[in-house]
């Protein structure tokens, strides 16, 4: 029995197929029967394939982690990371006692939840809509138009936002004034900052975000639609009851991934749109880290803040994953 699997073919890749089909019970027996090493040897091509990715993560994502220790040390460049002296949780205490701790946490959380609430559902709706359009040319051009902003770099994007929203010469401000409405000070008013950030983010990324859903939607069995049409289901009903359920697993996976990033608001765009007037709503953890670390060279302190940020992210990711697992059986692991 075991032998038959092992001889099944020298082309390791083919081997995978029959194995996948086996019942869990048989898999277990197989695993205990042969040492892990010899099984790995058997499928060396697969390991070779995966090696670059594993190496990449080891070298660029795991190896640098040893630097995290400076969060608990007083990092002095000349002494290096290993020889700097330990100070325990001093830097964390300083951050928690900082005047801005509350503001930073609130801004970071609210900004990313706001972004999630607006930015997450829109690509889904857009993808469902694209999927309904059959006309090739129209569909393609609309898709291209919505993808295009994704390729604008953040710096240029921020420049465009500032120019469009400038109170004296901004195109959008002029447009609003045409309707006889006094345009708000989009970039100077703290209460507008988050909206500007989120809406511009939607404009830039909603189209691009549809790609993964469109891929999932292409997997819908046409027979389901045919059957539904025979049963007299309207287009909207079919979208709701056939298309949407098909992409629900994709949606939940993406939601989990997004939740893991809730405190990870990218700093570039925030930093570029920040000014001393909107600071109270635009200062987030990552810009704070940038300021204290790169600008003021307090490397240990900013590492501590960054580490705190990552720990919260990890906790959120695991929690949401667990919830998803219990409720919908879709989860990352």
């Amino acid at each position: 029995m075991k032998e038959s699997v092992e001889i099944a073919g020298p082309e390791g890749v083919d081997l995978q197929q029959p194995r996948m089909g086996r019942s869990p019970g048989k898999m277990r027996r197989l695993a205990s029967g042969k040492s892990t090493w010899s099984k790995m040897l058997q499928n060396w091509e697969l390991y070779l394939f995966v090696a670059p990715a594993v190496l990449y993560f080891l070298i660029f994502h795991y190896a640098p982690m040893y630097g995290i220790q400076i969060a608990f040390k007083n990092f002095i460049p000349a002494k290096g990371i290993l020889n700097s002296e330990w100070v325990g949780f001093q830097h964390f205490e300083r951050f928690f006692n900082s005047y801005y701790f509350g503001d930073l946490l609130w801004n970071t959380l609210s900004l990313s939840l706001y972004e999630l609430a607006i930015g997450f559902p829109l690509p889904i709706i857009l993808a469902l809509a694209f999927n309904e359009v059959k006309n090739g040319f129209f569909k393609k051009s609309v898709q291209t138009v919505t993808y295009a902003p994704h390729f604008i770099s953040v710096v240029v994007m921020a420049g465009m936002i500032i120019t469009f929203l400038s109170p004296s010469s901004g195109m959008l401000v002029r447009l609003i004034e045409l309707f006889g409405i006094d345009a708000p000070k989009f970039l100077d008013d703290p209460s507008w900052f988050k909206t500007v950030y989120v809406i511009s983010g939607v404009w830039q990324n909603a189209g691009w975000g549809t790609i993964i859903y469109l891929a999932a939607l292409s997997g819908v069995d046409p027979q389901l639609h045919e059957a539904a049409i025979v049963d007299g289901a309207s287009r909207f009903k079919r979208m709701l009851h056939i298309n949407l359920p098909t992409i629900v697993p994709t949606i939940s996976i993406l939601l989990i991934l997004n939740m893991g990033n809730v405190l990870g608001v990218g700093y570039e765009k925030v930093l570029l749109l920040q000014n001393s007037l909107n600071m109270e709503s635009s200062d987030v953890i990552s810009t704070f880290v940038y300021r204290s670390g790169l600008v003021n060279a307090q490397f240990s302190f900013s590492t501590a803040v960054g580490l705190f940020n990552s720990v919260v992210n990890a906790i959120l990711l695991v929690t949401v994953n667990q919830i998803a697992k219990r409720t919908s059986k879709t989860s990352l692991w």
Binding site: I162, S166, P167, S168, K185, L187, D188, N275, S276, L277
Partner: peptide, 10 residues
Amino acid sequence: HESFSQTSEQ
């Protein structure tokens, strides 16, 4: 009124 948001180029 753009003193806090403009660049020196502007």
